[in-house]
Design a protein around this nucleic acid. Structure first.
Length: 1159
DNA sequence: GAGCACTGC
């Protein structure tokens, strides 16, 4: 069999050979698969034994330490005698307990050399072929014999068992038989896919990876972008029977999470394609608003948020057999929580599995749908920095193995700037791009800057320079024979322009806004007049740059300067070797740029901006082919670091900065700050230059700054953001002590405390920090707790106002407001994609656009609330015939509007599914536009918004200046763009406090004083009426924590008790009769309401008889059983009055003879 | 008179 495969056919041409080989292989494949299935039928064995078979499959490879240790144990378990001593071990232990825990051992596999790969590549056409070839190894027969003996033994023991235990065992053993050696699901990939797959280093590691997964509950796989881990590992699992209904212990779905929606879609499509199946069949996906997944899907791609929701409803994730958390190094909030949750899921599943196995062994039966198998967890990361996951015992009792996958990444040469310009990095970036363009061979340039405005400014400057460069070149060509000396411009770049780029007033102002915001004159480095011609040239001489060959080594190199030269030489040799092996020898791109000194004519620049807020169409332009002779320059924010990979980039210019939102935990004030990125980020940015060939990364900072100032990696999200949502989610999953949750990196204790304070203010937690029913309901909505609180308040209010005809409309507004407050304000228009070179034209257009936006804002503006304004915008957008045109003409951000619309629809569905009575009354979108909310409806919505932001109240001090209760030190301001700017109400709540020039409030809503007063209440425990008191202190009238005390005013006390009585808080029998009430009991609490007949008479009756507690009511009723009868009856609808009033003295007696019914 | 990196249920 082996010989056949190796037969040489020397007389044939290459393609003929290839064809012939293919045919042969096909034949072999058929033959072998027939043989295999024959064997499979013959030997039906247990899982334990199959594991043995798996390891022995790899003939020619010596056993790993792990296998050596495990084998005797498995043999003895399978009932096979073994000479080797058997270490007796609990099964659960054996799953967790593995190699010693030194870091070296944790790396099961390291880089595989390329030569290894060459050999294997030829053999590796498909998994089936591979195993077939292995089977034909010399020792095969011998081992087969041994195995056969083993199976015979096993069959014997099994039969004995069956005899003893009868039919009950049948189900289980049947399952086990299919699990036998056939741990292979046959896959037919398109030929083209097989071809490209072969080149992925990870393909060679399938066995190592699967082995690690088989033996460990958790495995970490690390490999840089492009190593194929995201697409291949799910396929390995699939081929090994995970997700297949045939293997009961692996029948659960393979779940893979991604932090971003686009990545979910892209990878799902890719894997479906590679497996040769249709998306939605074997391979499915789910993101927030989109889902394509079938009953038979074995592989499910999803965002981490989706899985988190699923964990919430089933902690054990019974639907899954494996969970892969991809991009774990990004340390996104959701991924971090999932890691913590899943460590628990694994543990419980394992315990449950053991319990079931024991039960089955003692003769019990378990319905097949209840059978539980262990859950596997795979963390995938682009960096080897996984200490947070493996260190300590918080997460995993035993550190999981780490498998490192090599990447076919081209070498990237790192150039550090020798000096670091603390302020004018934009000028440096401009200079570097122009000098690359002038001196270095073709290849795209990617520049990392911090924000949208920087992107736009730099784009503009570069475009202008490019234009002039072309003009210059043309002129030079024309006058070439005149042999003109250099005319004083740098490669055709006007020096004035360059100076302008540095000195531009608007620019410098921006850059000083960053975190190194000292006075530029003090830092010394910022003399803008410095840039004379000579400096321009010199600044880019080699002497100004420190060059390192491989980014991954940059770290160690800069740490030890002395060894630098020797190391550098060594690594250069390494890099050269790597380069020659892995790249196509295109000499023009292979040559070192430094050696490339010959003059060459720079062509046009194709300058493109890239940031997240850019329209998708504009973003896609970076993927377009560049014209002949053009050079692509992409000026990007952080999007290009993680979310988007641009093809054809050879040079990266890294400013080393990024803008990030920071958050003051005490005041809730947010700011955007420019700060240094982390070393990991820098390495990620550099890697973008090596995707299509060897590249270069120019860092506009020194290696000293890099190693001394840069953090090793960016802090995980959970340490940077408010965690109220996290705390609510965990509490809703029965984790009362959030601080004990096994976070990979726990949030600050103060952060958790603040979150609990917030949730208490929202009444999601009681004073002891326990989840309230309201909190439970809030956690079911896919929003931040504030938004869900607001929505639930509206629903509650509408329920109280029964049969309110416009309830749907109000709900529509509530949902739209929630959606509006959840996203960015769409009224902030982007001036994107406009031709900024046409100056006069541009100015006029800008003005036109501004006027248009202003008019639109006025049209939609609701003077009482920004949220309602945006809600109205949303309804109008949805009603518009042409959404795109609507956004265009009203200056709205299209992407935000689409997102908001989808969010609103999702919320509406959720709300309707909760309030079933209202389902079916489908809301007419057009109807809403024609029916703006009425005054009282606006107030209802305002009150609900107030409930969600009750701790973010501000009171006017003068004009648009406010004092916020969370900010003691300084005033806050109403933003000009707020729709409240003209009305500037006395009191308001804001959803966001952002410091730019001043602390500005965003998302403001007017508040009526009475909405803030905590309502007085009746305490059943104490049988007394209380009201809230907020003491104030000191000259600033600081509010101290609210506390409650008994209501002193007799009449008011009687009214509060009366309200509680009608609400059924006092007598449960009245609670059930509440639907029959003719009016709202809350009217009793408003003094204006006391003028009403039924309100006044009840309050008076209660006050007169001194009834303010159940105790006093009972006493009075004992004296006169008809007391209060008419006053209460007046509260019931007339049609219901001929029925017996549900609560008379008799029922009172019967109800209250047993005190337990009271509480 | 003024601006806001990037994600997600």
């Amino acid at each position: 069999m082996c010989d056949k495969l190796n037969i040489k056919k020397p007389t044939l041409s290459k393609s003929q050979k290839r064809k012939l080989k293919k045919i042969e292989e096909e034949k072999e494949r058929e033959l072998l698969s027939a043989k295999t299935s024959e064997l499979l039928d013959k030997y039906k064995i247990s899982e334990d034994v199959s594991l043995l078979l798996q390891s022995s499959k790899a003939i020619g490879r010596s056993d790993t330490k792990l296998e050596k240790r495990r084998r005797p144990m498995q043999l003895s378990k399978a009932g096979v005698l073994s000479d080797e001593p058997v270490k007796e071990k609990d099964d659960s232990d054996s799953l967790m307990d593995d190699e010693p825990t030194t870091p070296e051992n944790r790396i099961l596999t390291t880089l595989q050399t390329d030569s290894d790969q060459l050999i294997h590549d030829d053999e590796l056409d498909s998994k089936v072929i591979m195993s077939a070839e292995e089977v034909c190894e010399e020792d095969e027969a011998k081992i087969r014999e041994e195995d056969e003996n083993m199976y015979m033994n096993l069959q014997r023991t099994r039969r004995d068992d069956d005899d003893e235990e009868g039919l009950q065992r049948m189900d289980v053993s049947e399952d086990v038989t299919v699990q036998g050696p056939a741990f292979v699901v046959h896959v037919s990939r398109p030929a083209e896919v097989e071809q490209t797959r072969k080149d992925l280093p990870i393909i060679m590691m399938e066995q190592e990876i699967m082995e690690a997964i088989n033996y460990h509950p958790t495995v970490i796989i690390s490999g840089k972008t492009g190593c194929g881990k995201t697409t291949q590992v799910p396929q390995f699992l699939y081929e090994a029977g995970f997700g297949s209904k045939q293997f009961s212990s692996r029948s659960g779905v393979i779940g893979i999470t991604q932090p971003r929606r686009v990545a979910v879609l892209a990878t799902a499509k890719r894997v479906a394609h590679e497996l040769g199946v249709r998306l939605g069949q074997e391979v499915g996906f789910q993101v927030r608003y989109d889902k394509k997944i079938g009953e038979n899907s074995a592989i499910k791609f999803m965002t981490d948020g989706i899985l988190l929701r699923e964990v919430k409803s089933d902690l054990l994730l019974r639907r899954y057999s494996v969970i892969i958390l991809d991009e774990a190094h990004e340390r996104s909030l959701n991924t971090d929580i999932l890691i913590g949750m899943l460590t628990r899921s694994i543990k419980i599943r394992q315990e449950e599995y053991m319990r079931q196995q024991k039960f089955i062994q003692t003769g019990g039966t378990i319905a097949s749908e209840k059978v539980i198998s262990p859950l596997k967890l795979i963390l995938m990361s682009a960096t080897l920095r996984v200490e947070d996951f493996v260190s300590g015992q918080r997460l995993f009792p035993k550190p999981p193995p780490v498998i490192e996958v090599p990447t076919r990444q081209y070498s990237v040469t790192i150039h550090f700037s020798k000096r670091t310009d603390e302020v004018n990095y934009m000028g440096e970036a401009y200079k570097k791009v122009m000098s690359i363009h002038k001196k270095l061979p073709q290849g795209g340039i990617l520049v990392f800057v911090t924000g949208q405005r920087e992107v736009d400014n730099l784009c503009e400057k570069l475009r202008k320079s490019s234009k002039e460069l072309v003009v210059q070149a043309a002129r030079r060509d024309a006058s070439e024979k005149k042999k003109l000396d250099d005319d004083g411009s740098f490669g055709g770049v006007d020096m004035k322009e360059i100076a302008e780029a540095f000195d531009d007033a608007s620019n410098t102002q921006d850059y000083r806004f960053n975190s190194f915001g000292e006075d530029p004159s003090e830092t010394g480095n910022v003399n803008y007049d410095d840039f004379d011609e000579e400096d321009m040239y010199e600044s880019d001489e080699e002497s100004d740059w420190e060059t390192i060959e491989d980014d991954s080594l940059a770290n160690s190199l800069v740490e030890d300067g002395k060894k630098f030269d020797a190391l550098r030489a060594a690594f250069k040799a390494l890099a050269d070797k790597k380069g020659s092996e892995s790249t196509e020898p295109t000499t023009s791109t292979e040559a070192e740029p430094e050696e490339e000194k010959k003059p060459f004519t720079p062509g046009k620049l194709r300058v493109l901006p890239l940031y997240a807020m850019l329209s998708p169409a504009a973003q896609l332009r970076v993927f377009e082919e560049v014209e002949e002779g053009e050079r692509l320059v992409v000026v990007a924010t952080n999007v290009a670091e993680t979310s988007l990979t641009i093809p054809g980039i050879k040079y990266v210019v890294d400013t080393g900065r990024a803008k990030a939102k920071s958050f003051d935990i005490k005041t809730g004030m947010e700011t955007y700050e420019v700060d240094w990125i982390s070393q990991a980020s820098a390495s990620q940015r550099a890697g973008r230059a090596g995707r299509t060939g060897p590249g270069h990364c120019y860092r506009l900072y020194s290696s000293t700054v890099f190693s001394n100032t840069f953090e090793e990696s960016s802090p995980p999200e959970i340490t940077r953001v408010p965690v109220d949502g996290v705390v609510l989610l965990l509490k809703s999953m029965n984790i009362p002590k959030v601080e004990n949750f096994p976070f990979p990196t726990p949030p600050e204790a103060s952060s958790i405390k603040q979150a609990e304070r917030c949730l208490k203010a929202l009444e999601a937690l009681d004073s002891d920090g326990r989840l309230t029913p309201l909190g439970k309901a809030m956690s079911d909505y896919p929003m931040s707790p504030r938004h869900s609180r607001m929505l639930l308040t509206v629903i509650q209010m509408l329920k109280e106002a029964r049969d309110y005809s416009r309830a749907n409309l109000v709900l529509g507004y509530a949902v739209a407001s929630a959606a509006a407050l959840s996203l960015q304000n769409p009224l902030i228009m982007q001036f994107e994609g406009e031709n900024k070179n046409e100056y006069e034209d541009d100015k006029q257009r800008k003005k036109d656009r501004k006027d248009k936006i202003k008019a639109a804002r006025d049209r939609f503006s609701n003077p009482s609330s920004d949220a309602l304004t945006v809600a109205y915008v949303l309804h109008s957008f949805e009603a518009a015939e042409n959404g795109v045109g609507f956004c265009e003409s009203n200056g709205l951000h299209l992407k935000t509007m689409h997102e908001m619309s989808k969010l609103k629809d999702q919320l509406l569905r959720l709300v309707f599914s909760c309030c079933k009575s209202r389902r079916g009354e489908v809301m007419e979108k057009r109807g809403i536009v024609q029916n703006p909310a009425l005054q009282q409806e606006e107030e209802l919505l305002g009150e609900a918004i107030c409930a969600g932001w009750a701790d973010r109240v501000a009171r006017k001090t003068r004009s648009t200046e406010y004092q916020a209760c969370a900010v003691q030190e300084e005033p806050v301001f109403l933003h000009r763009w707020s729709s409240l700017i003209n009305s500037a109400p006395e009191l308001l709540v804001y959803s966001e406090l952002l410091r730019t020039n001043k602390p500005y409030m965003h998302g403001a809503t007017r508040v009526k004083p009475e909405w803030l007063d905590p309502k007085p209440y009746y305490s059943r425990e104490l049988d007394r009426v209380f009201c809230w008191v907020v003491p104030s202190f000191g000259p600033h009238l600081w509010e101290l924590p609210a506390h409650s005390e008994e209501v002193r005013d007799d009449r008011y006390r009687a009214a509060v008790f009366g309200c509680a009585l009608l609400q059924g808080e006092v007598l449960p029998c009245l609670k059930s009769a509440r639907a029959l009430l003719a009016g709202k009991p809350e009217t009793l609490l408003e003094r204006e309401g006391w003028g009403l007949e039924r309100v006044g008479s009840l309050v008076t009756a209660l006050e007169k008889k001194k009834i303010d507690s159940l105790e006093s009511l009972r006493k009075r009723w004992e004296q006169n059983s008809n007391l209060l009868y008419p006053e209460i009856e007046a509260w019931f609808q007339k049609k219901s009055r001929h029925h017996e009033i549900p609560c008379d003295n008799k029922s009172f007696e019967s109800l209250h003879s047993t005190p337990s019914t009271l509480v």
